[in-house]
Computed example of a mutant assay.
Amino acid sequence: MINSLQANLQKLRASAPLVHNITNFVVMNFTANALLAVGASPVMAHATEEVEDMVSIADALVVNIGTLSLQWVEGMKLAMKKAAQLGKPIILDPVGAGATPYRNSVLAELLETASPTIIRGNGSEILALAGASVQTKGVDSTADSTDSIGAARVLSKRFGAVVSVSGAVDVIVHGSRIGWVSNGVPLMTKVTGMGCSASALAGAFAAVCPDPFEAAVSAAATMGVCGELAFRNAKLPGSFQIAFLDTLSEISPAHLQELSKIRLE
C-alpha cells in the first residue's frame, strides 16, 4: 500500500485533476488552497444553472453539506445525478449529520439521488448516517472513529461506497476491507476545515486512482503525515493552518513512505 500512496501522489501532481466542490462558506477558501497545495485544481460552483456543466468537465465531485440552503441542495442533487451518469467519483461529506431533522432529510435526499463513491465524516456523522441515535455537538464528533466501524460497514454495504471515518485513528471501510491510518496530531481538530479538506483530498485522489478504497487511504495518510510535519514547526492553530498548507505543497512520496502508519485487514 505504501508504494501505491507514493504512486498516487505522483499521479495527482502529474495530472492536476479538476475537483468540483459544492462545499460550505466556512471552509471554501481553505479547501481550495489545500487542493491547490497538493497539486489538484479546485473549482467551487453551486449554482443550479451550471453545476451539471461543471461536473461534465471535472474529474471528481465533492459534496459537503456544512451550510445548507434550498438552492444549494438542488445544486447538489443535480450535480450528483450528473456525476453518476458520467461515472465520475462522488465524495459526500455529511457534515453535522444527526444534528437537525432538516440536515438528516437532506442527506436522505442526496443518497436517494446517487450513491457516493466515498463517504467521509467523523464518528458521530457516520453513526447518524447509518441510522443510529447519536447525541451530536453541532458539527463536532462525540464518538470515536473506532466506535463507528459497524455503522461504516452498514453504509458501505448499503451504498457500495468506501466509508472513511476520521479520528485519532482514521478508519476506512469498503465491504470486507478495512484500513487503519494512525497519522495526525490533536491540533488538527482545532483548525476549521481540516475534515472538509480531507474530503476534498479524497476527491483529488479518487480522480486519479481507480480503486476508491486506495484513494481514501491515500487521502487520509497524506492529511495525517502533513499534520505531523506541520506540527514540528507550528504549535498554535493560526500558524499551524499556514504550516499545514505549506507542507501539503512540499510533501513528497518519500515522506509518505517514511512516515505513513497504515494497517490493512
Rank of each mutant, 00 (worst) to 15 (best):
S4V: 11
S4T: 13
Q6W: 00
N8I: 02
K11N: 15
A16E: 12
A16P: 02
P17W: 00
P17A: 04
V19K: 06
N24C: 08
F30L: 12
V38W: 00
V43I: 15
M44A: 08
A47T: 09
A47H: 07
E50R: 05
V55Y: 13
L61W: 06
V63E: 08
L68P: 03
L70V: 08
V73N: 04
M76I: 07
L78S: 14
M80G: 06
K81L: 05
A84S: 14
Q85R: 11
K88C: 10
D93H: 03
P94I: 05
G98H: 10
A99G: 08
S105R: 14
S105G: 00
V106P: 05
V106M: 08
L107R: 09
A108V: 06
L110I: 12
L111D: 13
A114E: 13
P116R: 09
T117H: 05
I118P: 11
R120M: 06
G121Q: 06
G121W: 04
G123E: 09
G123T: 15
S133K: 15
D140Q: 05
D140Y: 02
T142V: 11
D144M: 08
T146M: 05
D147A: 15
D147V: 05
I149T: 15
A152C: 10
G160D: 11
S164F: 01
S166A: 13
H174F: 10
H174R: 10
H174S: 15
S176T: 14
R177M: 12
G179V: 08
G179H: 10
W180S: 09
S182F: 01
N183L: 02
P186W: 00
T192V: 14
M194R: 02
G195F: 03
C196T: 14
A200C: 10
V208A: 04
V208G: 06
V208S: 04
V208P: 10
F213Y: 11
A219H: 01
A220Y: 04
A221F: 01
T222Q: 12
T222C: 13
G224C: 09
C226D: 13
L229Y: 08
L229K: 15
A234G: 13
K235H: 11
S239A: 14
Q241W: 01
L245Y: 07
D246R: 13
S249A: 12
R263H: 10
